[in-house]
Simulated assay, not measured.
Amino acid sequence: MDDAADLETNLLGPVLSHRSCGDCTACCTVLPVNSPDFAKPAGIPCTHLIANGCGIHAVRPHICRTWFCVWRREEDLPDAARPDRSGLLISVNFVAEPQNCFEGVAINVRLLPGSDAIANGMAARVLDVLCDRLIPVWFSDGDKKMLMHPEPDIAGLVLSGALAPAALRDEVAAWREQYGMFASDG
């Protein structure tokens, strides 16, 4: 767990002291938890969740004390991007057996049920902020997971191993260097 928290800090910076979860409990329902001291499936409210938040907040499990959504770490995201306000839960994902090099470590933007974040433009605002660095960004609407960053031409070249045109060579090389460790051998 601490390794994941350290990696999140290296990727995004520390938790912002001026941002708090407040009334937001999206992670308490949406995310799966599978840690030594607590487990729950995705999409199921935590058994400790009560009307005004966590019923065991003072003694909550380690995972709940150390995990923070990307909104809590990314200064450039607007205050309105807090999950309960925006309808988007943004997290750093770690996939032990990724299907491609962009899945090993990535940012995942989840559209929450009933969200109007696409129609009102919040999803586009969030993606504009997140898609400006060397971190893969996925968008999930509950049914599909779509790679939003890098752009398709860059992603295709990285995945295929093909020689990149001169104009894209540096960017493709940077993605390959950063995420090559997650490339499949098969």
Rank of each mutant, 00 (worst) to 15 (best):
F94K: 05
F68E: 10
A51Q: 12
P61W: 12
V92E: 01
E103N: 04
S35Q: 13
D76K: 15
P83M: 03
V59M: 08
E97F: 12
H62I: 11
H62L: 13
I50K: 14
A51T: 12
I56V: 15
H62Q: 13
R85Q: 15
L88R: 05
C54H: 04
S35C: 11
D37K: 07
E103M: 14
A80I: 07
D37S: 07
Q99H: 15
I44G: 02
R82F: 03
I63C: 12
R60A: 08
A80H: 06
A39R: 14
R60G: 04
I63R: 12
L49M: 11
L88N: 02
I50M: 13
C69T: 07
C69Q: 00
S35N: 10
P41Y: 09
T66W: 00
L49W: 02
E103V: 06
L49Q: 07
D37T: 10
V92T: 10
E74Y: 07
W71C: 06
D79K: 12
R60E: 05
C101S: 10
G87I: 05
E103I: 07
S35A: 15
A51D: 12
S86M: 06
P36L: 09
E75G: 10
R72C: 06
P61M: 05
N100S: 11
V92I: 12
N93A: 13
I44Y: 12
R65G: 08
A42E: 06
F38G: 00
